[in-house]
């Protein structure tokens, strides 16, 4: 009897469905990974920051990278862009890519878009940590 209770104590708890849902929706729509876990202020702040950063990048005529860039830096930039999830999908679907970069602000815009994606990835990981109970 004592052995069976010891086995039960040592067994790791099964991950809840939230540990999959939160990072997934957090990746798709920035901040929603926190919103679905009732962290409303954090979720709204993350959403406002990441969406603003991405949209300012688009408004500055930043480049939205595609997977077949050819150059290594282009591929890494594509990974960063793709981390923005739904924002990246919308910008590709609506063809918000202005094409060639012709001015300095457009180069800043490209960096804004990549960093917005990377921040969204950090946000989704944070939502996962909250879901598994590693963070409050």
């Amino acid at each position: 009897m004592a052995n069976s209770s010891k086995v039960v104590e040592q067994t790791a708890p099964l991950p809840s469905s939230m540990s999959i849902i939160a990072p997934a929706v957090g990746w798709l729509v920035p901040g929603t990974g926190h919103l679905v876990q009732k962290r409303y202020i954090r979720g709204v702040l993350l959403m406002a920051s990441i969406v603003s950063m991405y949209m300012i990048g688009i408004a500055m005529e930043g480049h939205v990278y595609t997977p077949n860039g050819g150059d290594l830096l282009d591929m890494l930039s594509f990974l960063g862009d793709a981390c923005a999830g739904g924002l990246y999908i919308i910008s590709r679907a609506l063809d918000w890519n202005p094409g060639l970069i012709t001015k300095a602000t457009a180069d800043y815009g490209s960096k804004f878009i990549v960093v917005a994606g990377l921040l969204n990835f950090i946000s989704a990981v944070d939502a996962y940590h909250i879901a598994i109970g590693k963070k409050q």
Binding site: R42, L45, L46, S49, I50, S52, M53, I56, K111, F112, V115, A116, L119, I122, S123, V125, D126
Partner: peptide
């Protein structure tokens, strides 16, 4: 602007 947005996300996460 970059500093502001990155700081908010880093602070929260």
């Amino acid at each position: 602007l970059y500093a502001l947005f990155a700081s908010i996300v880093m602070g929260i996460c």
